[in-house]
Amino acid sequence: MRKIMTTAAALSLAVGAGFAVAPNAQAATPCPSGAFCIRETNGDILSRNIFYSYGAHNLSNVTGNRVLVNSQTGGAGFEVCWGYNGVSCSGVSRDTGEYDPYDMTPINSVVLVR
């Protein structure tokens, strides 16, 4: 009984501190170093959504809220674009790591920039 109470108290503390508790959750697929990636809604990264080369990359079947991951090195960034072939783009984002979920439904391409 004491162990159960200790475990319950630890979980309450973790939740109160803002940590998510998901005992059966799997870790999301990592984005390879030097790449820009778009996660699927389940956390996976499909090989077609891993980009290494600079320039425009047209997207296919990438809709809904997706996490964008910039693992590029050397200060490289990316833009999301409403048109194909890198037309009508956002500003350049250079921070590395995961970005908050972004609605990719109107997005048709991404551009990787130096």
Rank of each mutant, 00 (worst) to 15 (best):
S47Q: 13
S93N: 11
F36H: 02
I50F: 04
I38R: 08
N58C: 01
V69E: 15
S71T: 01
T63N: 11
A56G: 01
V69N: 06
G55Q: 11
V111H: 06
E98P: 00
H57G: 03
A27F: 05
G74W: 02
G74D: 03
C89Y: 12
G86S: 07
A25R: 05
S33H: 05
A20E: 10
V110I: 15
T73I: 07
S12G: 15
L46P: 00
R94Q: 08
G74P: 00
A17E: 06
R114M: 04
T41Y: 03
L11T: 07
H57S: 02
A8N: 07
S12M: 11
N108V: 00
I45W: 07
S90W: 04
V69K: 01
S47F: 06
A14F: 13
S93R: 14
H57D: 04
F78N: 05
V67W: 05
L46N: 06
P106N: 12
P30S: 10
N61S: 15
S109H: 07
D95L: 05
R66A: 08
L112W: 07
P32S: 12
N70I: 01
M5L: 15
N70T: 02
G77N: 08
R94G: 05
S88N: 15
A20S: 10
L46A: 15
G55P: 11
W82S: 09
T7P: 00
V92A: 11
K3S: 13
V111P: 00
G97R: 05
P106Q: 10
T96F: 03
A35G: 00
D44V: 07
V67F: 08
G74F: 02
S47D: 15
P106R: 07
G86L: 14
Q26F: 01
G83T: 10
P106I: 10
H57P: 04
L13A: 14
G74M: 03
Y52I: 03
N65P: 00
R39Y: 12
S60E: 13
N61Q: 13
A17I: 06
G18S: 11
G97N: 05
E79T: 12
R114K: 12
C37G: 04
P23D: 01
R114Q: 14
A20P: 00
T105H: 05
T96M: 06
S60K: 11
N65E: 12
D95W: 12
C31H: 08
N42M: 06
V69D: 13
G64H: 09
V15T: 08
L46K: 13
N24V: 08
T41D: 12
S53C: 00
P101N: 10
A35Y: 13
L68C: 07
R39G: 03
A22V: 06
L13K: 03
N24W: 04
V80D: 01
T41A: 13
S33N: 14
N61L: 14
G16D: 02
